[in-house]
Design a protein around this nucleic acid. Structure first.
Length: 605
RNA sequence: GCGCCCGUGGCUCAAUGGAUAGAGCAUCGGACUUCGGAUCCGACGGUUGGGGGUUCGAGUCCCUCCGGGCGCGCCA
């Protein structure tokens, strides 16, 4: 519908141009918006103002000329009006709105098949995911769904840093904890080691007071076989490791003890990674998130891609060796101030080097756009990455980074203290277990990504209308109940026909039709702007309209009544609403239950 | 010190440079003997952190100050 308005206005402007009333070089963008005030109609456009500015003319005259030049399809608009100082307002005829109900769940393919690689989460396998990762995960997954729905060809990827100091540190920490638990405390716990109690669990330290508790709280342990299968490909080829893993598969604790006793730190490190990645994958799965591909950093090293990349940069003059023997990437003239080390003096490439190779790989795979979702603490990294892409001959603007800000958990009105290295904290897994996937997802998506947010655990758990996710889900359940009741009475939901439009005469019904008709453009716009939260707000608004309609007329003008025509039309309307709610919630990865269960003991989900 | 993000009713948050800044919660006042009341309606509540600028038009863009968060490693 918006597209039609835009076309009508563009054509009108072209007509004026042909008549010489608009200079050839004046081409203001035609921006269609939704007026805030209902009396202005359904669509508005400030084109006369823009035109007047560009052509240095009086906006009122421009508006009048445009009005005269507009040729709208017959019957589509009830009114097109000019409002001083320079707005053109369009009121769509109710019948035209109702036409949209034929394919209300169709979303304009604004993506045009553009190939997009969306990389998100990519947390290092050195510990469980925390709540901040969860926000990025939910945003990424919803964005992938929304963009796919709007015609983008999206692939999703998790980049695993399975090489480097952090992994080694995790291995040492776990190794030391394991030795300790066996009474073999000959290995000192590293200064910078990971101190969370999960380290003890990962180390498989039998008799650890944490172990039983963690097994109880973290069902991921029972998924062990699954993820071993899933991550089989990361085996190093070391046969002793393979057999170690096999043994581990049969029995969790004993082989760890063997490895610990035999001082096999590498085995511990590698198995840690498998366990932690399995934990991560399981948590994400619990949130309904799966990746098209897990990309492992070690692949880039094995294929020499990292080395090839930095050598290429030296060759092209974008990098240079310094006196100490390190290789630095040139940042001169870029936003970043200092040159960055890509190969250390000891010959080991840095994380940045691998990341450059990774992004080069992504760009070479033929994607038009690379979207990365990063924690806001990585923002300083963006100019470097762009500069690197440019140095390798790619268009730096193809990289788009969405920064996700911190999440503060609130319980009993107080912030919940979190600290990563220092010890225990509420993991993403804990959060999902506590409040359920739907609440986590919807509440995260009710905020735009780039501002810090509070997550109220008590609100998320509450089964009341204060809880936005329940409010929307209840709306769907309520609609489903009506459709069920009709079916029980042998009344079927009719298909679309134009004559149903005239039956839906109540203002609330017409408003519902208009709101439903917006669905496609809301999703398309959310996809274009990479802001899935618009969908969450839209659904909340839509449901609010329905609840109001329902409550107001439940004694006078019910959906199911003795009047067969009204029943048919309203049933049709309500079923369209059900479809939009179900599909909209699906885009957010939130379930659309057919009924809400009250039982407080039930798993909230 | 340099850089990035944020600052909107008491609280949590919306608002492609457009018209009189919107929701939810909280507070107060109402409706309704259920197509599921797990609902709805109304009221109260704002100098969009302060100041300057660009523009026909600024919460939105620019400058500056204040406040909050986060970065600035041969860590990842």
């Amino acid at each position: 519908m918006e597209a039609i308005v835009e076309r009508v206005l563009t054509e009108a402007m072209e007509r004026l141009r042909a008549e010489g009333k608009v200079p050839a070089d004046v081409r203001p963008a035609v921006v269609i918006e939704r007026p805030k005030r209902e009396e202005f109609g359904d669509f508005g456009c400030a084109l006369p103002l823009a035109l007047a500015k560009a052509a240095r003319r009086n906006p009122v005259e421009c508006g009048k000329e445009l009005m005269a030049a507009i040729q709208a399809p017959h019957g589509l608009f009830e009114a097109i009006t000019f409002a001083p100082p320079g707005y053109l307002n369009f009121k769509v005829a109710p019948a035209a709105w109702f036409d949209r109900m034929q394919d209300v769940t169709t979303i304009p393919a604004v993506g045009g098949g553009q190939r997009v690689l969306l990389e998100y989460v990519s947390a290092n396998p050195t510990g469980p995911l925390h709540v901040g990762h969860g926000r990025g995960a939910v945003l990424g997954d919803a964005l992938a769904r929304v963009m796919r729905a709007a015609g983008y060809a999206v692939d999703t990827e998790y980049y695993v840093n399975d090489v480097g100091n952090q992994m080694a540190m995790m291995g040492l920490s776990s190794y030391a904890r394991g030795r300790e638990s066996l009474g073999l405390d000959d290995s000192e716990f590293p200064e910078e080691g990971y101190k969370g109690s999960y380290v003890g669990v990962v180390s498989g330290s039998a008799g650890s007071p944490d172990l039983d508790e963690h097994i109880r709280r973290h069902p991921w342990l029972t998924y062990y076989q699954d993820y071993l299968k899933q991550f089989k490909s990361i085996g190093t080829g070391d046969s002793s490791l393979r057999s170690f893993a096999d043994t581990l598969r049969k029995e969790f604790q004993k082989p760890r003890i063997v490895a610990l006793a035999s001082r096999d730190r590498n085995a511990i490190t590698t198995v840690n990674e498998k366990i932690l990645l399995g934990w991560i994958a399981n948590t994400l799965k619990r949130l309904g998130i799966e990746f098209d591909r897990w990309f492992f950093e070690h692949e880039l090293h094995q294929s020499n891609a990292v080395q090839d990349t930095w050598k290429k940069l030296i060759h092209s003059g974008h990098a240079y060796p310094d006196e100490a023997g390190a290789v630095l990437f040139r940042m001169e003239g870029k936003a970043d101030e200092a040159d960055r080390v890509i190969v250390r003096a000891n010959g080991v490439p840095t994380y940045f080097a691998a990341d450059i190779a990774y992004h080069d790989d992504k760009a070479r795979r033929g994607y038009a756009r690379l979207i990365n979702i990063w924690g806001a603490d990585h923002h300083g990294y963006i100019p470097r990455m762009r500069a690197a892409l440019e140095a390798l001959g790619h268009d730096p603007s193809m990289l788009q980074v969405l920064l996700v800000q911190m999440v503060t958990l609130i319980r009993d009105g107080q912030p919940v203290p979190m600290g990563k290295r220092s010890g225990d904290y509420i993991t993403l897994q804990d959060l999902v277990e506590e409040v359920g996937s739907d609440a986590v997802r919807f509440l995260f998506l009710l905020r735009k990504a780039d501002s810090q947010m509070e997550f109220d655990l008590d609100l998320a758990k509450s089964q009341s209308m204060d809880n936005p996710v329940y409010y929307v889900q209840y709306g769907h359940a309520r609609v489903a109940a009506i459709v069920r009741k009709a079916a029980a009475q042998g009344i079927e939901v009719p298909g679309w026909s134009a004559d149903l439009a005239g039956v839906l005469a109540l203002p609330e019904e017409q408003a519902l039709v208009r709101d439903l008709a917006r669905y496609g453009s809301v999703v398309a716009s959310a996809a274009r702007r990479c802001e899935p939260h618009h969908v969450a707000f839209y659904l909340t608004d839509l449901v609010k309209g329905f609840h109001g309609y329902y409550t107001r007329y439940k004694h006078s003008e019910k959906v199911i009544s003795a009047d067969a025509r009204k029943t048919a039309a309203r049933l049709f309307l309500v079923s369209r609403l059900q479809s939009v709610l179900a599909e909209g919630l699906a885009l957010l990865g939130v379930s659309a239950p057919g009924e809400m269960r009250l039982a407080a003991d039930d798993e909230p989900a």
